[in-house]
Every structure is written in C-alpha cells, then in structure tokens.
C-alpha cells in the first residue's frame, strides 16, 4: 500500500517537471555520457583559464630558455623548475603549450562550427520554406559539396588562401555548412506540413516570424546532435590540417601543430612532444563524441520505445 502510494507520488512529481528537466534526468541516466560531459566542461574551463593557470606562457620568449629543450617528463630545469610533461625543442613546457594549444583548437572549432551553423541553418530553412527552384539549387550545391571529403576541400582551399587562424576558420565553416543545411531542410520539410504551421499561416503571421519562431525551434533536436558531432569533427580536421602544414601558423599552435612538431622526434624515441598533445586531443574529441552520441539516442524518437 505505502509502496504503491509512494511510487504514484514520484510519478506525479515527474509529470509536472519541465521537458528540459526530464531531458536532463534522462541524460544523467547514462553514466558514461555524464562523465564525458564533465570532462568537456573541465577541458573548456582549463582552456579559458590557461593564461592564468599554465605554469608558463610558452610564447613569451623571456619565460623560456633554449637550455631547457627536450627535457623528459618530470625532469627539472637548470633553474629547478619542474617540467611535468617534459619540454619541446625550444625549451617550452609541454603542459603549458598543451593548455594554450587546447585553447586554440577549441576556439577555431567552436567559432567555425557556430559560423557554419548560422549559414547552414539559414540556407537550409530557406530552401525548405520556399521550396521549388531555390530548394533545388541549394540542395544540388549541398550534394556537390558533400560528395567530396571535407579534408580535401579544406586542404585545397587553404593551399590557395595560405596559413592563418581566420583562414582555417573560414575553410572549416565552408566544409561544414552543408551538413546543417541538409539536416535543417530535412526536418523542416516534415515540420512544414504540420498543422501548427498551417495555423500560423492562417493567422497571417509575418513570414520571418513563422520561420524563426515556429518552424526553427521544432527542428532543433537533430541540429544539436549534428552540431555536437561537428565540433568534434572540426577539432580533428583542424588538427589534421595543421599537421599537414596548411593550418594555424607556427606562432599560434593548436594541439595538431604541437603533434606535428613532435613528429620528427618520434623515431629517436622522444615520444612526449607528440604523444601528450595527442592524448589531450583524443580525450577532447572522444568526450564530445560521447556526449553527442548519447544526445542522438535521447533525441531519436524511433529508439524511445
């Protein structure tokens, strides 16, 4: 008796919670995803705070000494400073370089993804709402772009544009927008035929209001998933481009460039210069992907039952 009464009160308690609360409760049910989310948050915090918490500023020439070069992890410098993860060929502390590198990697990826999201969503929803020739032209463009691997497009583009943080961001945006455009369009095509859009049209609401206040919010779920996965993808792509020598400039290295710098020492067994930045890169990407993967499961109505 008391058990059934207790369970019925908890059930009614859940019912009055907002959808966001319920979503959060569902999300927390997966321990791995929760840990991954915590890791992502910590990494983001470290990268933002890196100028204050890093042992040294690796790009301030007054703080580094060439005599400290290629120290092994946990070795001390001549001045007695501890290099927890060793140092690189110019005597920079690897831990500090990684923190700054993480900041650069996240900055490039998140900026590019946000830009691509704006461009892709606008074009996708325009294609879906107007249909007809606009839709046909835009979607041909999307098909054309998606039929070529992102790495190849970005590589050639950067070969043309040259190095630079802004150029990398532009290239990453250009290879990403098509994913959002296609996702939004696919969803909006379904949503557009729903009654609430018809109702909004009957009310003679302005077109931009229907599109942005009624249509767009109902297409958000899949977009969140795609955006999460694309941030991870952008981090990986930027690292790859930097490794190939067409990414960020040597003065503002990302994790990918740090790995690239250490690559030439691999054969002599000096592993730390490229293995540690790689581990951090992997941790970042895996955590984001784990979060994205769980979000996808949660937002997939077909797996709900």
């Amino acid at each position: 008796m008391s058990v059934s009464a207790a369970s019925s009160t908890t059930r009614s308690a859940i019912k009055i919670e907002t959808p966001l609360h319920m979503f959060w409760a569902d999300f927390c049910a997966n321990r791995i995803a929760l840990i991954a989310l915590a890791v992502v948050s910590v990494l983001a915090l470290i990268s933002v705070l890196s100028p204050w918490i890093a042992p040294q500023n690796p790009y301030d020439l007054t703080q580094i000494s060439i005599f400290d070069n290629m120290l092994k992890p946990l070795q001390r410098s001549q001045e007695g400073k501890l290099f927890v993860l060793g140092s690189d060929e110019q005597g920079r502390d690897m831990l500090s370089a990684m923190m700054y590198g993480l900041k650069m990697s996240l900055f490039v990826a998140i900026t590019a993804t946000t830009a691509a999201l704006c461009v892709g969503v606008s074009l996708g929803i325009i294609a879906a709402y107007f249909g007809g020739r606009v839709d046909a032209v835009l979607m041909r463009l999307v098909d054309l772009q998606l039929s070529f691997p992102a790495i190849l497009i970005a590589l050639i583009l950067l070969a043309v544009l040259g190095k630079g943080v802004d150029k990398v961001i532009f290239a990453l945006m250009l290879v990403q927008w098509a994913y959002y455009a296609r996702t939004v369009r696919g969803n909006a095509m379904v949503e557009r035929r729903r009654e609430y859009i018809e109702a909004a049209q009957c009310l003679a609401l302005p077109r931009h209001r229907i599109i942005f206040r009624h249509l767009l919010p109902n297409c958000l779920g899949p977009l969140i998933v795609v955006a999460t996965v694309q941030v991870a993808h952008a981090i990986s792509l930027e690292a790859t481009l930097s490794f190939l020598g067409v990414g960020v400039p040597i003065t503002e290295p990302s994790l990918g460039l740090l790995i690239s710098n250490g690559y030439k020492y691999i054969l002599s067994g000096k592993y730390w210069v490229s293995i540690y930045p790689g581990l951090l890169l992997l941790l970042t990407i895996v955590s984001i992907n784990l979060v994205g993967d769980h979000l996808r499961d949660l937002l997939n109505p077909r797996l709900k039952a």
Binding site: A239, I266, S274, G278, I285, V286, N289
Partner: peptide
C-alpha cells in the same frame, strides 16, 4: 566512438 574520434595522423604516429 573512440575509433571514430582518433585523429588519423596521431594514431599513425602512435603506431610508429
């Protein structure tokens, strides 16, 4: 998911 996330070039370096 880990395999999905592995940066290709870094995995190659680790293999080497």
């Amino acid at each position: 998911i880990v395999g999905f996330s592995l940066p290709n070039f870094w995995f190659g370096i680790v293999m080497i």
